[in-house]
């Protein structure tokens, strides 16, 4: 540390020549900074475009060979060179759906509790715990999922579901089959836990931005906490909340290792959500390393391209919903 001292005004006096030079120097450095910032932004676009183009070129042989069928066929047979993406797309969407169904209400519930109901000294510890959950690497969730959570699913949760919901007409098919622990539902539940902190952390931060005067006014006219949250907090913060939910959905769609560990990696669509399945990223992680060049590799790249498109559609839909909401507001 060096001590800073204020210089007397007379010492800082400069001639007009110095001033012009200094200004010119500033202009150059400013232009340089602008170029750097522009370059950084363009770099992102170039990389994104490069990824899309190279994925598409790699995927082209598979699209040419199988056409639209690639999207709807559920066969995946390297020896016969017959590939279809339906199983992986189905698994990706269903595991993410299960995760969102659980994580969104629970995540918002935690955020409301932390901002509205929680005893003040507890807020920080719980908040920090949630942020720590967000920082755990996904492989750790995978190991936890396969060693601790999966045996619980096999021994208790799945037999319970099979014996209760499994006996109902129609929806019983969703809960049929032997309890093996691995499966779409297990993957969905692990994913739910993984994305929960994203939803909670973002929602809590935006809930904190609601001006206290609005909430106090609502409480003042006799609104319950539920009414305050439903009518004041969430409408005021919905843009931020949807942003957090979309961030979480993005992570759920692309999550690889944790899902690979527990999803069962079966390349077949089955009606029951207790049965094994696979996701796009799990498929690529398992098979890319020694896929033969040609149709096999190309089909895996095509899967990657499809995941890219799905993620893009989800983000676009979120943007669209947000712009509609902003128009109404």
């Amino acid at each position: 540390m060096t001590a800073t001292t204020l210089q007397p005004a007379s010492a800082a006096r400069s001639s007009p020549m110095d001033r012009a030079r200094a200004l010119a120097r500033l202009r150059v450095s400013d232009a340089g900074f602008r170029l750097f910032a522009l370059g950084a932004a363009v770099l992102v676009l170039v990389i994104l475009l490069g990824v899309v183009i190279s994925l598409f070129i790699g995927a082209l042989p598979a699209f040419r060979e199988f056409g639209v069928d690639f999207l709807f066929s559920d066969s995946w047979s390297p020896p016969k060179e017959k590939f279809g993406a339906a199983t992986a797309i189905y698994g990706t969407l269903v595991t993410s759906l299960i995760a969102m169904l659980i994580a969104v209400p629970v995540g918002l519930g935690i955020a409301v509790f932390l901002t509205e109901l929680c005893w003040l000294p507890l807020r920080r510890p719980i908040g920090v715990a949630i942020e720590l959950l967000a920082g755990i690497p996904s492989i750790i969730y995978g190991i936890w999922g396969v060693y601790y959570f999966r045996p619980v699913m096999q021994a208790y949760i799945q037999p319970f579901l099979i014996n209760t919901l499994g006996n109902l007409p129609i929806i019983g098919h969703l809960f049929a089959g032997p309890p093996l622990g691995y499966g779409i539902l297990t993957a969905g539940l692990v994913l739910a836990l993984m994305i929960l902190p994203f939803i909670t952390a973002v929602s809590r931060d935006v809930f904190d931005t609601v001006p206290p005067v609005l909430k106090e006014a609502a409480y003042g006219v006799g609104a319950t906490t539920f009414e305050v949250v439903g009518n004041i907090v969430i409408p005021y913060t919905r843009v931020g909340v949807i942003g957090g939910v979309m961030l979480a959905l993005g992570r759920a769609l692309g999550e690889t290792m944790a899902v690979t560990f527990v999803v069962g990696n079966a390349t077949k669509i089955q009606a029951s959500i207790l049965a094994q399945g696979t996701t796009i990223s799990a498929m690529i992680a398992n098979q890319f390393a020694d896929a033969d060049p040609g149709l096999f590799t190309s089909s895996l790249l095509a899967l990657g391209f499809i995941l890219f498109v799905i993620t893009f559609l989800v983000l676009a839909a979120a943007r669209f919903m947000l712009s509609r909401l902003e128009l109404k507001a």
Binding site: P151, T260, A266, N286
Partner: peptide, 24 residues
């Protein structure tokens, strides 16, 4: 080296299979 398995659970590597068998 990879086939279209009609049923079952996929695991990664010899150790992955060993591990799944040990815990299931």
């Amino acid at each position: 080296t990879t086939v279209e398995w009609p049923s079952g659970i996929g695991a990664k590597g010899n150790d992955g299979v060993a591990n799944n068998v040990a815990t299931t």
